[in-house]
């Protein structure tokens, strides 16, 4: 059920739509322009990796915890990589504590899909003993302040936190898993970048603010990898796109993705 109750007054809505019809946005950005993106890594000492991301006024914090775990029965030779996201009740006036609603579940699953499908982490190298012991990589995200485009902000935080994460070195001794106390970097192969585009009254805008999201007809999130391939996608909200708009969204995602990837790599010391 749509629990979102952020309200945009009709006069404001009309203003946004009118500006968009002239190709302008209410915050002065270009249609395919990202808000200011700030990334700070190594913010939580007790996590294996962490990142604080600010995208305009949207603020999210991601932390990585890595331990030994048991593999899923259908993938005995692969480590675990699980992304979770929680929109904290402090993040907006209309939110309340409670189990995650369908929007929060969709958010976590879409971010997880982007990281998983790009094969960012080589999970097949995260095995201690096949079928029995593997490394488990949990990335949990707290959303601290909501101002639109949680999908991308969350994804950037997850990717930045993983890029800076270390893992403990486990060895097998007499069939018992032992922590050697050594640290190793995570086997990172790719840097997936999520780009979300909203359709407002048949105008496409990249990185929508909360105001824009409140009046959008539909949104589409497309993830790209380092080679410019598309690796995950999700259309959401009860509106639609023309096929041509989807192609445009893919072009924007590929082009903007390159710049954002560079910025994230630099922030995480992977340049």
């Amino acid at each position: 059920m749509p629990a979102k109750s952020f309200v945009v007054e009709t006069i404001k809505r009309n203003q946004i739509v009118e500006l968009l019809s002239k190709g302008k946005r209410s915050d002065g950005r270009g249609l395919s322009e990202l808000r200011k993106l700030e990334i700070k890594t190594h913010v939580i000492e007790k996590a294996n990796g962490s990142a604080m991301v600010k995208l305009g006024n949207t603020e999210v914090l991601a932390g990585v915890k890595i331990d030994k775990g048991t593999p899923f029965p259908d993938t005995p030779n692969k480590g675990l990589l699980i992304v979770g996201a929680e929109v904290l009740p402090m993040a907006a006036s209309y939110l309340e504590a409670g189990p995650p609603d369908e929007s929060a579940i969709e958010l976590a699953r879409v971010v997880d899909r982007g990281v998983r499908e790009s094969e960012m982490i080589d999970v097949s190298s995260l095995v201690i003993k096949e079928g029995k012991w593997v490394y488990s990589v949990f990335v949990d995200v707290n959303i601290l302040n909501v101002d639109g485009n949680l999908f991308d902000a969350t994804s950037y935080a997850v990717v930045s936190a993983l890029l800076t994460a270390w893992m403990p070195k486990f060895v097998l001794e007499n069939d018992v898993v032992k922590n050697t106390g050594e640290k190793m970097p995570l086997p990172v192969h790719k840097v997936p970048i999520s780009v979300t585009i909203a359709n407002i009254n048949n105008t496409l805008v990249l990185d929508p603010t909360e105001e824009e999201e409140a009046i959008m007809d539909a949104r589409i999130t497309l993830d790209t990898d380092d080679d410019g391939n598309l690796c995950a996608g999700q259309k959401g909200e009860p509106g639609s796109f023309t096929p041509e708009q989807i192609i445009t969204a893919a072009e924007w995602s590929i082009a903007r993705g390159k710049e954002i990837r560079q910025q994230i790599k630099e922030a995480a010391g992977h340049a």
Binding site: R113, N229, L230, C231, A232, G233, K235, S240, F241, P243
Partner: peptide, 14 residues
């Protein structure tokens, strides 16, 4: 001619 659902996983070139 309106797309109302699109999801994707896996690798696709443009």
């Amino acid at each position: 001619n309106q797309v109302t659902l699109l999801q994707m996983d896996g690798l696709f070139t443009f």
